[in-house]
Design a protein around this nucleic acid. Structure first.
Length: 268
DNA sequence: ATGGCTGATTATATCAGA
């Protein structure tokens, strides 16, 4: 059997619930993970998602910004929400689901963007991002996770490889592609516990983007994108990866998110 | 050409995104 999992930085779930329902009707993932829901849990559009067939919903929101959620056709185990860096931010939610008699942990992240200045000494947001990545690294090595079937998804706000950005040279000192960030992300991957699922299907020499700035007057023509959104699977699941899609069309829908939805399909 | 935009806020300018 197949299972399809989508991640989408939706940039306000209330504003774009219509686009979400459209996406779900067209592509029918089993599970969808959202970032930047930008609402309190009490304001989350549960009923629209339930009507679309996603009965199992867990949320970790806050007023106005950040916020993550998971909506699923499959039952989800108890939600866990870890406050990385102890700042009270809603940036993580996780839960287990079962497929083919295997229990798989699913963790959904919204890693800090990091502000403008790529210097932790003068930019507290960048310092926060680097500290978050360090804590994330340690957490991936914890026993509970290291021995599990697990999938990590979300907006990591880092484009780790040369061809994850439109110009490696132009962005080397731009937050999201600085060596301070990309080295940390690559170190987590190179520990060997994770498969970068999008790159599993696309050669390192090919450009691959999931985000295009709102500021470009013609984002599609300029195509100055970055691969900020990620799906990593534990090595135990690597051989089950069956397909990957970046739904670039969704970036061109009316009043779009600046991120495209990204899916992987696993086969068991 | 790192911002030319966008979203949320007991708003009408400020913060956040990246």
């Amino acid at each position: 059997m197949n299972i399809k999992i989508t991640t989408w930085n939706i940039n306000s779930i209330r504003l774009r619930i219509g686009l979400v329902v459209d996406f779900l009707s067209r592509h029918a993932p089993d599970i969808i993970c959202f970032q930047e829901t930008k609402c309190r849990d009490s304001e989350f559009p549960f009923s629209a998602l339930r009507q679309a067939g996603y009965e199992h919903i867990i949320v970790n929101g806050q007023k106005g910004y950040h916020g993550v959620a998971i909506a699923s056709r499959l039952p989800l185990g108890e939600a866990n929400r870890r406050d990385f860096c102890d700042q009270g931010d809603a940036r993580h939610i996780g839960a287990a689901f079962t497929v083919a008699d295997r229990s798989i942990q699913l963790h959904n992240f919204y890693i800090p963007a990091g502000g403008d200045e790529p210097d932790p000494a003068v930019n507290a947001k960048f310092a926060h991002k680097l500290a978050f990545l360090d804590e994330f690294h340690l957490w991936t090595q914890s026993d509970a996770l290291a021995k599990a079937d697990a999938i990590l998804v979300g907006d990591f706000n880092v484009a780790p490889y040369e061809h994850d950005v439109w110009s490696h040279k132009a962005l080397l000192n731009v937050v999201s592609h600085t060596p301070a960030e990309t080295d940390k992300l690559k170190a987590i991957l190179s520990d060997g516990a994770w498969v970068d699922a999008l790159r599993r299907f696309t050669p390192m020499s090919e450009k691959l983007y999931t985000w295009w700035s709102y500021r470009s007057p013609d984002w599609a023509k300029a195509n100055k994108g970055r691969r900020l959104d990620h799906i990593w699977v534990s090595h135990s699941l690597g051989d089950h990866l069956d397909a990957m899609d970046i739904f670039r069309d969704a970036r061109g829908w009316e009043r779009p998110s600046d991120h495209a939805p990204v899916s992987v399909t696993l086969n068991f």
